Computed example of a mutant assay.
Amino acid sequence: MFFSIIIPLYNRPQEIEELLNTLTEQSYTAFEVLVIEDGSTLDAKDIVASFQSKLDIHYYFKPNEGQGFARNYGFERAKGDYFIIFDSDCLIPEDYLENVKNHLYNEPLDAFGGPDAAHPSFTPIQRAISYAMTSVFTTGGIRGKAKNAGGQFHPRSFNMGLSKKVWEKVGGFILTRLGEDIEYSIRIHQAGFKIGLIPNAFVYHKRRTSFKQFWKQLHFFGRARINITTFFPKTLKLVHFFPAVFTLFLIITLLANLFFEVLAPTFNFFLSIYILLIFFDSWSKNKSAKVAFLSIFASFIQLTAYGFGFMQDFWKKLILKNKL
């Protein structure tokens, strides 16, 4: 079984060096690596070239079109039986490909995904962000689970694989961003292919290194959910409204404290319970009071940034469009 690892890259040479270093340590070695530089002004050509003696690696530079179309560019040139796509901010455990190969032999899949985790070397903020993206108190704990909110498993593009047959029949990404991975997964499902989670095929996902960057990313994710809905209206589920509801709850709590003091204690009580649940849950998982404290901020950013992005495009693309 031969794998083609495809990595889109945009102005992140340091990240690709760390990722490629982890690929040199893979216990299963039947793979090639395709780095697709998507119009970067700060390219990684020399860094990729330094791995020529360690990896079967290929470097391509193309005009900037976004990550979805950069992956398509890689698909067109890949030789593998399976194509695996990683984000450039991932670190890959040494047994990743071994675990994928074994799973596919024992339980064949046409497309697959795996979970993400925080590496011990990550900063406290990165670990807090990882908690916020995987906790039952924020995302419902559905990331890295066999079924997502819509009842089907939708691999995410930071850690996603598909067979060459899927590429030949379904094609590639038709969106370059704003939920492109979920849209692609839905089309793979609709084409009758089998998609599944490989639980032990996890990656260490750095995500963002500051809360400001994290806010921008999650605001984008909220907008992406509505973008997917414009293609597949039935995929919008009640659970997708939770961040927006939480955001409205925070606004109402603030207003209650400013103008309706009689109601404030009730809202403050429920908010305090929620904060304590996040703190102690994160502490139990990360074994760090500092990370647990930062997890409160990360969780609130995760929910409110997504909530505002969701409400923004829900109004623009669904409400206003229906009125026109």
Results as ranks from 00 to 15, higher is better:
residue 249 F to W: 04
residue 80 G to S: 08
residue 184 Y to P: 00
residue 237 K to R: 13
residue 232 F to M: 00
residue 274 Y to S: 01
residue 320 L to K: 15
residue 3 F to R: 00
residue 79 K to W: 12
residue 62 K to E: 05
residue 74 G to V: 03
residue 250 L to C: 15
residue 80 G to T: 04
residue 296 I to Y: 04
residue 224 A to E: 04
residue 231 F to N: 08
residue 207 R to P: 06
residue 26 Q to P: 01
residue 153 F to T: 01
residue 138 T to Q: 01
residue 67 Q to E: 14
residue 305 A to S: 15
residue 249 F to E: 05
residue 14 Q to V: 14
residue 315 W to K: 13
residue 103 H to K: 03
residue 160 M to Q: 10
residue 175 L to S: 11
residue 114 G to T: 00
residue 269 F to C: 13
residue 9 L to R: 12
residue 7 I to D: 07
residue 43 D to Q: 08
residue 133 M to H: 09
residue 145 K to Q: 14
residue 286 N to S: 11
residue 288 S to E: 01
residue 10 Y to A: 05
residue 137 F to V: 06
residue 66 G to I: 09
residue 178 L to Q: 10
residue 84 I to T: 02
residue 128 A to R: 02
residue 296 I to G: 09
residue 21 N to P: 05
residue 4 S to R: 03
residue 246 F to R: 12
residue 83 F to A: 05
residue 106 N to H: 15
residue 239 V to A: 06
residue 144 G to M: 06
residue 203 V to D: 00
residue 287 K to Q: 10
residue 84 I to W: 00
residue 167 W to A: 10
residue 29 T to S: 12
residue 309 G to T: 06
residue 266 T to A: 14
residue 26 Q to M: 00
residue 284 S to G: 15
residue 150 G to N: 13
residue 169 K to D: 11
residue 289 A to G: 10
residue 225 R to P: 06
residue 315 W to F: 15
residue 198 I to H: 03
residue 90 C to P: 01
residue 173 F to N: 08
residue 156 R to W: 12
residue 285 K to Y: 12
residue 194 K to D: 06
residue 86 F to A: 02
residue 244 A to E: 04
residue 305 A to Q: 09
residue 290 K to T: 11
residue 107 E to L: 15
residue 127 R to H: 01
residue 318 L to E: 08
residue 297 F to C: 12
residue 231 F to H: 13
residue 95 D to I: 00
residue 243 P to L: 02
residue 269 F to G: 07
residue 146 A to T: 05
residue 300 F to S: 01
residue 224 A to Q: 02
residue 81 D to I: 13
residue 203 V to T: 01
residue 14 Q to M: 13
residue 301 I to R: 07
residue 166 V to R: 03
residue 87 D to E: 09
residue 107 E to F: 15
residue 302 Q to I: 01
residue 47 I to M: 07
residue 115 P to H: 01
residue 175 L to T: 08
residue 104 L to I: 06
residue 150 G to V: 04
residue 171 G to N: 14
residue 167 W to N: 13
residue 55 L to P: 00
residue 20 L to M: 08
